[in-house]
């Protein structure tokens, strides 16, 4: 069977690419430390020597739209183009191209459907920064095939938080049941507290540092039940109006497992939102 060699959860900050590649007066004062933290985080994936990446993210109204909105969608294409005009315009993100892994996509869909998740699928998916940002931070050579999984954290009505956790658990079972000798990493990105287009946006820190501290503790400790007891679709409005992206972190906690402490934890307090990086090694840390 396939081996789940790493579970990685991260924020997906679209400004990292521009900050890390700028120079001179354009380079923000926090860029060097940010690069150092990201490169240390990247090493946690490199050490796991993955062959294929399952990438969990959320389309930001790029290809998925309100006339036909899936809750959970799996890409099953042989290739994926990445990033959109408005992401080039606002964030300076480059156009990207990634190989797909059709066999694992088909396995995820079949097994997911048979496990009680009526997953949507796409044969032609242009991925956005929720998936390309972790490629830039964690695997900038973009040389591994991916299976993208999109969740709806954006367009209500949304699935309940527990459903994200359940999907994470199911993804783990599906990956570990894949009849293959491939080494799989599951990487998912979301948000801590975040406000977009509201009065609390672009402050000196994330809109709710107390929530962020609590959330980092839940993720780092694998405290799924405690997190589920405190988080609801309603409560996630309080830390910031885009904080429902935290449910993708909850999905990744489901992949990692109840009570599983992360092997690697780092955070970086930036303006607008806090960065957070987590890695679990289900089979123990690679030597």
């Amino acid at each position: 069977m396939a081996e789940l060699v790493a579970v990685i959860a991260s924020t997906h900050h679209p400004f990292y690419h521009r900050a890390s590649t700028s120079s001179g007066e354009d380079r923000p004062p926090f860029a060097d430390e940010w690069v150092r933290k990201v490169e240390a985080f990247r090493e946690t994936l490199t050490l796991a020597r993955p062959d294929v990446l399952v990438m969990v993210g959320s389309d930001h109204f790029h290809q998925l739209w309100l006339d036909n909105m899936p809750q959970f969608l799996v890409g099953k294409a042989p290739a994926y183009d990445g990033n959109w005009y408005n992401e080039e315009r606002e964030f300076g993100l480059p156009r990207m191209h990634l190989a797909g892994h059709e066999e694992l996509s088909a396995h995820v869909l079949r097994q997911g459907l048979d496990s009680g998740f009526d997953l949507a699928f796409s044969n032609e998916l242009r991925i956005d920064h929720s998936i390309t940002c972790p490629i830039i931070t964690l695997r900038p050579q973009a040389d591994l095939p991916i299976v993208p999984i999109y969740t709806n954290i954006f367009a209500p009505p949304l699935p309940q938080p527990k459903r994200f956790v359940q999907l994470g658990r199911t993804i783990r079972e599906i990956v570990e049941g894949w009849p293959s000798d491939q080494r799989v990493a599951v990487i998912g990105t979301g948000h801590l507290s975040l406000e977009l287009g509201g009065p609390r946006q672009f402050g000196p820190h994330g809109p709710d540092p107390q929530f962020d501290q609590k959330a980092v503790g839940w993720i780092a400790g694998g405290d799924i039940e405690e997190c589920l007891a405190e988080v609801s679709l309603e409560s996630l409005h309080l830390p910031g109006n885009a904080t429902h992206g935290f449910m993708d972190f909850m999905l990744m906690m489901g992949v990692a497992g109840e009570g599983q402490r992360a092997d690697y934890v780092d955070t970086f307090d930036l303006f607008h939102t806090m960065e957070a990086y987590f890695t679990w090694y289900p089979k123990g840390a690679p030597s």
């Binding site: 109204f61 315009r89 287009g197």
Partner: peptide
């Protein structure tokens, strides 16, 4: 209106008329 859509489009139109994050901060104000 969806605040992400509004913010993204208005940044595209008006950030250019401001320094740094001034437009985003005025938007919040």
């Amino acid at each position: 209106a969806h605040p992400f859509l509004t913010l993204t489009l208005f940044i595209a139109m008006f950030e250019r008329d401001h320094e740094g994050l001034d437009f985003q901060l005025e938007y919040a104000r």
